[in-house]
Amino acid sequence: MSETRVQLIERLKKIAHRMRVHILNMTYWANSGHPGGSMSATDIVATLYFHQMKHDPQNPKWADRDRFVLSKGHCTPVLYAALAEAGYIPVEELKTFRQVNSRLQGHPNLLKCPGVEASTGTLGQGLSMAVGMALAAKLDQKPWRVYCMLGDGESQEGQIWEAAMSAAHYKLDNLVAILDWNKFQIDGAVENVMNIMPMLDKFKAFGWNVAEIDGHDYNQILDVLEKAESSGQRPFFIQANTSKGKGVSFTQDKGDYHGRALTKEEMQRAMTELGEKFG
């Protein structure tokens, strides 16, 4: 029996809930990492890994898989949470995040962790790698697609715009870039540090098809990803309006949790709120 839209969304929400718990735990155990931007991206990443993308956790190097490039590489917790839930890595292994000898490096390392498609970390680089991947699929006339998640602060890097220009130039309609517009970077609100808006107008001017969604509304996420599949010779840009730290009342919409783990007391509050055990 095929899944109805309602059932699909219920399933995705359950996975996203577990992913947020993983994110909070991982960063708490490591006492470092980036929970805020991981939680803002969770609903989109869950939809990609557990509905939209064709991939095989038993065969991570399957040639015809869709690719996900986490250009905002500091948000490894959301990526590892997805890879653990999908079965690329054991959930237990999340305890090793950011520790010596771990496959789960602070920033993604494709040579260490199965399922990681691109080693990112210095910002602005993922979209270029995604462009190269999309070009390869075009060259081989393969139907696989590339999804690239951009950070908002990251979009201040000039390389993003070099990549944006080249994606349109080479008509990469197999490439989707998703901006996690959670509105905060380390030094504060993006609009105060260095305003990046209007991003829809910018990408449109660069020759992309564009759309704006609520990045926590599953109906909108599902619809826009489906729409992006037929983008007519243009790459597709999605501005996903999200909340930093989404999922826990006191982390939500706060820049404070960009680059720090929760304290013990905060974890107790957060887990109680999420209906999960702590410790």
């Binding site: 040639a63 270029s128 462009v131 060259l139 070099e162 990549a163 080249s166």
Partner: peptide, 26 residues
């Protein structure tokens, strides 16, 4: 011509895209 890509005056993007192409088997 089908296997040549000019990236214009954008070396950073070129090396990034080169990496993506190589990771996809080229």
């Amino acid at each position: 011509p089908d296997r040549f890509f000019n990236f214009g005056i954008a070396e950073q993007n070129m090396l990034g895209a080169a990496t993506g192409l190589a990771l996809s088997g080229k």
